[in-house]
């Protein structure tokens, strides 16, 4: 009992820090960085992606013995695409403004390498519950990087968090200015690079 428990825990927690999908596996940087200008969109994106990875892992794992090996990529793509369409329609129905801001990037979850990568490398070889947890862990690991980047960009770029002003007015009066650069695309690349540096230095200790 003990061993299975630790394995389950490992499956969830390893991808969050030690084997983070963005920083270590270098998967899925595509597309989603564009939504990190604001914290709000990043959080919605993180939740959408986590749910899609978790459920696609679950579905692929349940069907893993029924899918013939040579057409598995197409089968996986169909499962992922269906889930993403569901997520997209749900967002449009309940959070129309955010769905407008996320625009094409929700759709691009389909080609996000994490989803396919986890389905290929984990869900095809493991039982459903474990695969679901692996998807959850990877989604959270990915989402936490996304949220960290968005936190830095929104705080430094517009002096706000989740749309509320957090930088005190006194700072602006004494000459502090928002860094407009943080709102542009290059900042996201540089922040990711620095976060990777931080994480590797901490891990090597």
């Amino acid at each position: 009992m003990k061993t299975t428990e630790t394995k389950t825990l490992k499956v969830i927690f390893e991808p969050i820090w030690k084997n983070n999908p963005i920083m270590v596996q270098i998967l899925g940087i595509c597309s989603s960085l564009a939504v990190t200008v604001q914290l709000k969109t990043a959080i919605v994106m993180a939740i959408a992606l986590t749910l899609v990875v978790a459920f696609s892992n679950l579905t692929v794992s349940v069907l893993r013995n029924a899918i013939p090996r040579n057409i598995r990529i197409i089968a996986e793509l169909c499962i992922v695409a269906t889930l993403v369409i569901l997520a997209d329609e749900l967002l449009k129905a309940f959070m129309y403004d955010i769905s407008k801001q996320l625009s094409v990037f929700v759709g691009l979850i389909i080609t996000n390498c994490i989803v396919m990568g986890r389905a290929e490398s984990f869900a095809l070889a493991n039982p459903p519950l474990l695969s679901f947890l692996d998807g959850l862990g990877n989604g959270i690991g990915y989402g936490s990087v996304l949220i960290a980047v968005a936190f830095i960009r929104e705080l430094m770029g517009s002096g706000k968090l989740l749309g509320f002003d957090v930088v005190p007015q006194a700072f602006y009066l004494s000459g502090y200015e928002n860094m407009g650069f943080m709102l542009l695309a290059p900042a996201a690349f540089i922040i990711i690079g620095l976060l990777v540096w931080l994480q590797r230095t901490l891990l090597n200790k």
Binding site: F189, I190, G193, L194, N204
Partner: peptide
């Protein structure tokens, strides 16, 4: 390159610099 920044880290930072140039 400083330790820990080699490979992925420095690639992202240089991509960022390149993106600035393109802008």
């Amino acid at each position: 390159v400083p330790e820990g920044l080699e490979g992925f880290g420095i690639t992202m930072i240089s991509t960022g610099l390149m993106a600035m140039a393109f802008m």
